[in-house]
Each structure stands twice: as structure tokens, then as C-alpha cells.
Design a protein around this nucleic acid. Structure first.
Length: 574
RNA sequence: GCGCCGGUAGCUUCAACUGGAUAGAGCGCCGGAUUUCGGCUCCGGAGGUUAUGGGUUCGACUCCUAUCCGGCGCACCA
């Protein structure tokens, strides 16, 4: 239920039914007509550019057409009671009491699904996919939360969504990781000193993993690295994945599916995918262009299988094989995406960190080639997070090899604050994450501010001995909102629009922004009661005006729906 | 050098509903309210050539183009 869509449909139908009277011969631009929120100072509920759009294609003066449309609309739509013509020919519309009541009652019926828009997409969202070589660090956090909330958003609209984690458990990094565990094991068992060398993982957590492995596998033979590699790999990965899953869990994130790169290779999916592309002439045995940047001395022109991603707008073709003939990371990833396509997803979304931007074109090219342009891959990039504490950049002064982990973050601030703040900015811009601000109980801390609004509402509801779950509706026409309530109502009506635009553009940050604005309106209304006793909600333990009760319920519904999508908890008391 | 992202008020903060009206918030600054249903809350004010030049049109922060500044990326790594 979106009143903008609803009335737009009614208005355009009305106009096209009356096109002769209006002397409209050309209605092809009707699809460009929109119904929006008018700028604040106009004090109207709806605004449409219909006369501007239609005047142009019909050679009429916008203001003349506007005058005729105004009468037509007012005479036919009982939910509207006043229309002004503004600026070059905008129609600003005010809802009638009947219109308000009808829409408010619909919200009370919808309740926890108010704002959702019925869709039937089938999405695969791949996010986090942190290398399984240790616990998660801050860099993963933003993308993790972004992916999770985007999933919630799409689910809210009724889509089917699979949240997926691609485990990069193959290749050199894993080899180095397992080697590090191996050396730590020997350190424990044979007292051999662990020497930090290039490519080895020095972090303390490796010791923990090693201890863990020993504890559970007393008989484990570690005389020879190559011989025990496979079993060690398995044990090490189990450990690191459980670290990661624990981090995710504490952030409130649960994936539906973990997809292993090793399995992909073992099941021969890479070879099959490459064959498929080869038969369609997208893969050939050839030579790569030299690298574009500084010429490296290591670069040699050698023949190998390459994917012709230039055909899909990439600036160079991409290698599928390394010098030694094994598959590149990219080749495996292409196979992985082929598998996603085979699983019949209609929409693929990858959430990436800023350092993977350069990868987007080639993997998108691969998806286009594999699906014959039928499946769309959307890559959303999360920019860097900069941590601040006491006004200064926050760095952990631990010894080399350690980094700021998700655990470090969770030791400072709770999951709710992290989630809200990580989303309180567009994914396209760098984000400053300020520890001090998040702990404040002030308006500066958006999480607190929104949660506080909800707690205040609950306080009132408690005082008058009602419950937010009570059924409520408007049953008579004496309903008469004041100025504050009209503003709040407009904001409430905007909610479905926020959801639509957030899900259409994959921009969940619009939700925290919106909730903050809604909370501002509420706190402002509340404070009016300090100034002027007439604006207090309660007198002698009873609600004074039934209108205010309606609005408290409306705000609570929307805050609740919004925070549920964000995965941030609310409290009745704080 | 090439590619991607960004450049909006004094600001190491950002919004602007996929081309609409007088470009909005926050911080800071100036002024005011408040012995409360629930606490650092509220109201008002000043502050702008949207990085710069050109173009597209009834209309541009938004699209095109050139330039400048900042970030990230440019492997046979993952």
C-alpha cells in the first residue's frame, strides 16, 4: 500500500477517461507523470507534475491545463479536499478527512507488513566471503551488514533470497594459512620457534587454532607438512570458519549457504564451465595484453586459456589459467557464477569491498556470457570505514600481523549500534565510525535517538494501560489532527516510498535516514508538551485526544518495521 | 597512464525520491524555551555561483563533454 502509487493510478485514469473534454490528443507521456511529496513549506500531502508533462506534448499552457485538471480531480476524487496550483503548474493536493482515515485504517490492517511491496524476485546475495584464514576484521563488517540488511529488505517485499558465502578455501593463501598452523603446531609440540616470514600468518589466533586442533586430535601426525596437508587443511578451515561464523552470529548475520571453492574444483565444475564458454567462442587459447601499469619484469608472453571479456566491455581479456596450467581465481569464480545461474536465480548480487572494484567488469562480463544476458549481476561496492576514537583515527597498537577485528569492535560497542551506524551512509562513500558518538545518549547518536523515540511511545502506552499489540482503528469522522500530527502523517505515508526506492536501488541506508527524520518529528511533538501543557498526551492517567493515540501507534508501527529490516533491536524501556 | 567512486553552507559530516518548484539535515556559531508522560530535549536565526568551463532543454546537483582535486583499483595473488 503506497498512497502515491495508488492515487497516481486513479488520477491518470481519470485524465485519460476525460481526454476529449481536456483537449488532450497525445497521452504517450502519461507514463512520465509522477506523484511525489511536495516540498515541506507548501504544507500539502501530494504533488503531481501532470500538467507540466501533458501540456508539453499537447501544446497547451501548463497553467491552463492545471486549472482544468484541478476541477476535474476535485470533483471526482473524494479523498482529496483541496488543490493548489503552484510554480510552473504543479498540482499540490491535500487529503480530505475521509482520505486520511481510509489510509490510516489500511496501515493498521497491514501493520507489520506496512511498507512492503509485493515482488517475486529470486535473489542470490553473495556477501562477506572473507578469506577463511582467520577471524573477521572491520573491513568485512560494513559489507556483511549491508548484505544482510539488503536481504532483509528484499525479503520484506516477498522476494525469495539466498544469502551466500563463498569460501575461498583454495589456492596459495590457504596453503600459507595451513602452513602457519602447521608451524604453530610444531611450536607447541616440539618447541620449535615460530619464525615470522613473508606469506605466513603471524596472528595470535593461529596459536589458538593450533591448540584447538591438538586438543581434539591427540594422534595427529605432523612430521611432514606435505603428507599431513589435506587433514590439516580440513581441521584449520573448520576452525577458521567457526571463528568467522561466530563473528557473523554476534553481528546478527546468518547465511543460508556456504559455497566452497575447493568443492567447485573437485567436482570439475571449472572445466565444464570453461568448455561451455569455449564452445560459444568466448574462450580461446591465446595471449594476454601486457599489463597496463608499469611494465613488470616478470611479465612474459605465454599461451594460455583466456576469457574474451573485451567482447563485454572489459578493457582487456582475462586469464583463466596460470603459467603452470592450474586455474586462476577468476576461472573458479566464473564457474561459481555459472553454478548460481544453473540454480535458476533471476538476480545475482555481489557485495564487495572497495579494493575489489576493478574486478566487477570481468565477472559481470562472465555472467553475461554464461547467461546470454538473461541474468543480471549487480555488484555493490562498500567504501572504507574509518574508525575514530577521542576524535583521532583509531588504530590498535598490537604487534604486527594483528588487525582490528570484529571482536575488538564488539568489545567497544554493541551490535545494534554497529549495524545502524554502518548503514547510516551510502555504501558509495567512506564512512567515519566514531566510538564516542555511538556511546552517547543524545541526538548525535542516531541509534539512541530512534530507540528512544520508541521507548517514549511505550512509556505512554504503559501509563494509559494499553498495549502496542492492541487492535486499533478510526471509526468516526470527528478525527482531526493538529499541525504536528499532519506532518507526522505525511512522513508515515512516505514509508512505502522509502522502501521502494531503497530496494529498487539497493540502497538500504535510506532506512536509517528516514527513521531518524521520523523520530525527530516525534521528539519535537513530545517536547511541545513541555512548552504548552495542552500538547501533553496524558491527563490523569488517560489519553487526552484519541488522535494522539492514533499517531503513537502509527509511529511505533513504522519504527518497528524499519528496525526489523535493519536488524536493530528496540526496547520498551531504556 | 587507464578504470571505478566521490567533490553540495565555516566543516576531514552528509541528503535531495532515478530531469522538477525557494537545494535540505547535522556539527559549529548567534539568540530563545524547559522544576517533564521519560533523563544531553525543543524552537528560531545567519550561512550556497552544487569543484570549474562548455553543452543538451521549458527546466540540470542530477544527463553529455573537457579540466582540476581526493580515495580505491589496475597479477598468472585471492
Amino acid at each position: 500500500m503506497n498512497i502515491f502509487e495508488h492515487y497516481l493510478h486513479i488520477i491518470t485514469k481519470l485524465v485519460s477517461d476525460n481526454k476529449h473534454d481536456l483537449k488532450l490528443t497525445n497521452l504517450k507521456d502519461l507514463k512520465n507523470v509522477n506523484l511525489e511529496v511536495p516540498p515541506n513549506h507548501f504544507n500539502f500531502d501530494l504533488s503531481t507534475n501532470i500538467s507540466l508533462v501533458l501540456a508539453k506534448s499537447n501544446n497547451l499552457k501548463p497553467n491552463d491545463l492545471a486549472a482544468e485538471l484541478k476541477d476535474l480531480i476535485l470533483n471526482n476524487i473524494t479523498h482529496f479536499y483541496k488543490i493548489d496550483i503552484a510554480g510552473p503548474g504543479f498540482l499540490n493536493i491535500k487529503l480530505s478527512k475521509e482520505g486520511m482515515i481510509s489510509n490510516i485504517n489500511k496501515i493498521f490492517e497491514k501493520k507489520e507488513i506496512y511498507g512492503s511491496k509485493k515482488s517475486d524476485g529470486f535473489y542470490n546475495i553473495e556477501f562477506v566471503s572473507a578469506n577463511p584464514t582467520g577471524p573477521m576484521h572491520v573491513g568485512h563488517c560494513r559489507g556483511a551488514i549491508f548484505g544482510d540488511v539488503l536481504s532483509n529488505l528484499l525479503l520484506f517485499n516477498g522476494n525469495r533470497v539466498v544469502k551466500e558465502y563463498y569460501i575461498n578455501d583454495y589456492g596459495n593463501q590457504i596453503h600459507n594459512f595451513v602452513k602457519s598452523v602447521y608451524l604453530r603446531l610444531r611450536e607447541i609440540k616440539f618447541n620449535e620457534k615460530f619464525v615470522i616470514k613473508e606469506n605466513l600468518y603471524p596472528g595470535e589466533y593461529i596459536k589458538e587454532i593450533a591448540k584447538n586442533i591438538i586438543k581434539k586430535n591427540k594422534e595427529l601426525n605432523i612430521d611432514n607438512f606435505d603428507k599431513s596437508f589435506e587433514i590439516l587443511k580440513k581441521l584449520s578451515l573448520e576452525n577458521s570458519m567457526s571463528l568467522i561464523k561466530n563473528d557473523l552470529k554476534q553481528l546478527g548475520i546468518v547465511h543460508d549457504n556456504f559455497f566452497s571453492e575447493t568443492e567447485l574444483v573437485e567436482k570439475n565444475l571449472v572445466k565444464r564451465t570453461v568448455n561451455q564458454l569455449q564452445s560459444e567462442n568466448y574462450v580461446e587459447d591465446g595471449y594476454l595484453d601486457p599489463p597496463k601499469g608499469e611494465l613488470s619484469e616478470n611479465w612474459k608472453k605465454t599461451k594460455r586459456l583466456i576469457f574474451k571479456s573485451k567482447l563485454f566491455g572489459d578493457d582487456t581479456d582475462r586469464a583463466l589459467q596460470k603459467n603452470d596450467g592450474t586455474w586462476t581465481y577468476f576461472a573458479n569464480d566464473v564457474a561459481y557464477h555459472a553454478d548460481k545461474i544453473n540454480r535458476k536465480f533471476k538476480n545475482l548480487i555481489n557485495i564487495l569491498g572497495a579494493d575489489h572494484t576493478g574486478y566487477i567488469t570481468r565477472i559481470s562480463a562472465a555472467v553475461s556470457a554464461l547467461s546470454k544476458n538473461k541474468v543480471k549481476l549487480n555488484c555493490k561496492v562498500c567504501q572504507l570505514v574509518k574508525l575514530y576514537k577521542n576524535g583521532k583515527p583509531f588504530k590498535m597498537s598490537k604487534r604486527a600481523g594483528d588487525f582490528i577485528s570484529v571482536q575488538d569492535l564488539l568489545n567497544e560497542v554493541n551490535k545494534d549500534s554497529i549495524r545502524f551506524m554502518m548503514l547510516n551512509r551510502s555504501n558509495d562513500v567512506e564512512l567515519d565510525f566514531d566510538f564516542d558518538k555511538i556511546k552517547e545518549k543524545t541526538k548525535d547518536n542516531p541509534v539512541f535517538y530512534v530507540q528512544y523515540a520508541y521507548a517514549r511511545i511505550n512509556s505512554i502506552i504503559r501509563t494509559i494501560k494499553r498495549n502496542l499489540d492492541d487492535k486499533i482503528s478510526i471509526n468516526d469522522n470527528s478525527f482531526s489532527p493538529n499541525d504536528y500530527e499532519e506532518k507526522i502523517l505525511r512522513k508515515i505515508f512516505e514509508w512505502p516510498k522509502v522502501i521502494e526506492s531503497a530496494s529498487y536501488k539497493f540502497e538500504p541506508h535510506k532506512i536509517p535516514f528516514y527513521l531518524y527524520e521520523l523520530s525527530t518529528l516525534f521528539h519535537s511533538y513530545w517536547s511541545k508538551g513541555n512548552e504548552d501543557k495542552n500538547f501533553r498526551f496524558i491527563e490523569n492517567g488517560k489519553i487526552k485526544r484519541k488522535e494522539s493515540l492514533i499517531f503513537l501507534y502509527l509511529i511505533a508501527i513504522v519504527i518497528k518495521n524499519g528496525m526489523k529490516i535493519l536488524g536493530v533491536s528496540l526496547h520498551e524501556k531504556m
